[in-house]
Amino acid sequence: MKIVVVGGTGLIGSQVVRRLTEHGHEAVAASPASGVDTITGEGLKEVLQGARVVVDVSNSPSFADDDVMAFFRTATGNLVEAAGAAGVGHYVALSVVGSDRLPEAGYLRAKVVQEDLIKQSGIPFSLVRATQFFEFVGGIADSSAEGTTVRLPGAGVQPIAAADVAAVVARTAAGEPLGGTVEIAGPEVFGMDEWVRTGLAFRHDAREVVTDAEARYFGAKPGKDGLLPGPGAQLSETRFADWLPVNPPVK
Rank of each mutant, 00 (worst) to 15 (best):
R101M: 14
A170S: 11
R216G: 15
G219E: 04
V92R: 05
A93P: 11
R101G: 10
T76V: 06
A145E: 01
V113T: 13
S121H: 07
A110V: 05
A75F: 09
G84Q: 11
T148K: 11
H204I: 10
V88W: 05
P153H: 01
G106R: 12
E146A: 13
A105V: 10
G180Q: 08
D100V: 09
A215N: 04
G154E: 01
V209R: 05
G179R: 02
S126C: 05
F190D: 02
A166M: 03
A82Q: 09
N78Q: 07
A206N: 12
A75T: 11
H204G: 14
T198I: 13
L108W: 12
G87K: 15
K119W: 12
A105T: 07
G179F: 06
I160S: 06
P177I: 02
A130C: 14
G77Q: 06
R129Y: 02
G87R: 15
A161N: 08
Y91W: 06
Y91M: 06
D164G: 05
E194D: 09
E115P: 15
E146I: 10
Q120P: 11
T149A: 00
E115H: 10
A170Y: 07
V209T: 01
G87S: 07
R151S: 09
V150D: 01
A163E: 13
D100A: 13
A85G: 07
D116I: 08
F218G: 14
A110T: 04
R171D: 00
G186H: 04
T181Q: 07
R171E: 00
A110D: 00
L94C: 14
G154D: 02
S95R: 14
L152P: 01
V112A: 08
